[in-house]
Amino acid sequence: MANSLTQLIQSNKARLLDLWIQKQLTSDSLRDDLMSNDELRAQSEELVNALARSLTEENIDQVDSIQFDEVFEILSGISVYRAQQGFSPRETGLYIFSLKDAILDLIRQEITDPARLFEESVRINRLLDSLGVVTFETFIKGREEVILRQTEEISDISTPVIQIWEGILALPIIGTLDSSRTQVVMENLLQRIVDTGSNIAILDISGVPAVDSLVAQHLIKTVSATRLMGAECIISGIRPEIAQTVVHLGIDLSNIITKASLASALKHAFAMSRMAVKRIDVDKKAL
């Protein structure tokens, strides 16, 4: 046992890296459209170096020892990066498993005794499998982060509060209104009312696909909250189908100002703030 497995890996680091890179470059899962080959090489080199550094004859069978933290950290970084770049789980999995192939190739060349070869292969398999598990865990975590960020972005951009005139805010709601969304809508609207000192808010629901009693209740809540703040709220964009459902469900919207279109709501808002839009007569003055 002059040449232990760890020594073998450490002294043949460069060869191992070459083997691995070669495997990756010839593999089907190579995605040079997502990541350049130089970048791939740099990442792989970092991982191989870290692995060679932390690997000792004692800890090779104990993958949860703290000496592997560095390896896991680098691996997690690569995995999250790949998740964000849009690599498929298969490609990420093949990436780490091709390292196993590379190491196995290496020891097959170096160790001739079949019994020892088998013994060392099992150990390498065990180590690399646990690295694979870590890769997948962090890959999924990375994906989840992407999804979470997108969800947040959607909820942020889906509730824009627009100031359409001095003292008049408009809030077009697109998509289904549920409790959490109503909360965001309400908070945004009330905050903007305070910020801009507007006293009329128009809630346009032409983009809301359906209104049931729950959605109606949310709308009534929003209107009541704006009233408490000292502003008036107009609901516009009520489609005929929605009017029918509201009446069939017996929802009382009688103490809320409702308008069919955003234009008529704006007209009403102008009237409430004692303003008028006038057409300018140009014909005489221009000539």
């Binding site: 909360q183 309400m186 908070e187 009312i193 305070v194 909250a225 009233r227 408490l228 703040m229 000292g230």
Partner: peptide, 17 residues
């Protein structure tokens, strides 16, 4: 006058309009 947004939301959730 001058009700804070958070206060308005709380009152509505408490059912006090």
């Amino acid at each position: 006058v001058g009700m804070q947004p958070a206060v308005a939301i709380t009152l509505i959730e408490l059912g006090l309009s």
